[in-house]
Write a protein that binds this DNA or RNA. Structure first.
Lengths: 138, 138
DNA sequence: CTAATGTCTCTAGCGACTAGAGCTTCAAGA
DNA sequence: TCTTGAAGCTCTAGTCGCTAGAGACATTAG
């Protein structure tokens, strides 16, 4: 049985984050000592590892809850898990696309700066003020 | 003088968003009609366009406030504006990097799915449960 | 004049935590 | 056994950038 601090160190999560996951129902309530402190078993530590990994990959809490639910009903089809992963992948790809365009635009803006007075000549300001300066949509 | 709805249509912002920008001090309080409705002048519409564009490029509100402050003091150096843009560019690049790695990992995970029972064979689950399955850091 | 649309303020909610106050419990050393 | 300091507890509120909704008032077109 591990204290919350020990589990935090093991999983890389922060202590309040673990409590938060319990609060939102991602993790069942652990046992408690007589003095009301949480004590986690191996299973729960593993689940927290799963959650951490999924969060690192950007899965929203809700999707993780669905995945955990699937894991607890092994009779269900793997297709649902694949679908969740697929959705996440598409989400990431969309963000990538958008960020790629932003990067192009911003580097164009940032490069154009002359470093002189801001008044009429500042390229950054002009670019932001007038969308027509832009190279592409965003 | 334009009503808030008209300005919203002109700038592409939503009505509550415009009120929000006023609330957080990004935009000065506009004139009001006798009936207490906001009426905006050309200058303010322009500024809202500036804000919209900067937000679309991902600048946080605080950075936009700093840019507006610079715009109102044309004697200051353009270097500060360039610095803000540079910071934003770096931020975008960091996110891009991270997302690129996530995309690789997720597409590997999503592709590996066999579509059969979730029990022992689900690749999605196994990948999430065990970080050792991963091809790279994230 | 009426009806429809627009606008007002205010509060609360989103997601995923994070910070802090004020208290209690635990574990290790003297 | 006692003490001390770290770690834990609950609760509330704050973060960011909006968004939604309630209930009331203003404006405008026909």
């Amino acid at each position: 049985m591990f204290s919350i601090g020990t589990v935090a160190r093991q999983t890389g999560l922060k202590v309040p984050t673990i409590r938060y996951y319990e609060q939102v129902g991602l993790l069942g309530a652990p046992e408690r000592t007589e003095g009301n402190q949480r004590r986690y078993g191996k299973d729960q530590v593993e689940r927290l590892g799963f959650i951490k990994h999924a969060r690192d990959l950007g899965f929203p809490i809700e999707a993780i809850a669905a995945l955990i639910d699937l894991a607890e009903h092994p009779d269900r089809s793997c297709a649902q898990a694949a679908e969740i992963a697929q959705r996440q992948l598409e989400d990431v790809r969309e963000k990538l696309e958008r960020l790629t365009r932003l990067e192009a635009e911003l580097s164009r803006i940032a490069k154009g700066c002359s470093g002189t007075g801001v008044a009429d000549t500042c390229y950054v300001m002009a670019s932001l003020a007038d969308h027509a300066h832009c190279g592409s949509e965003h």
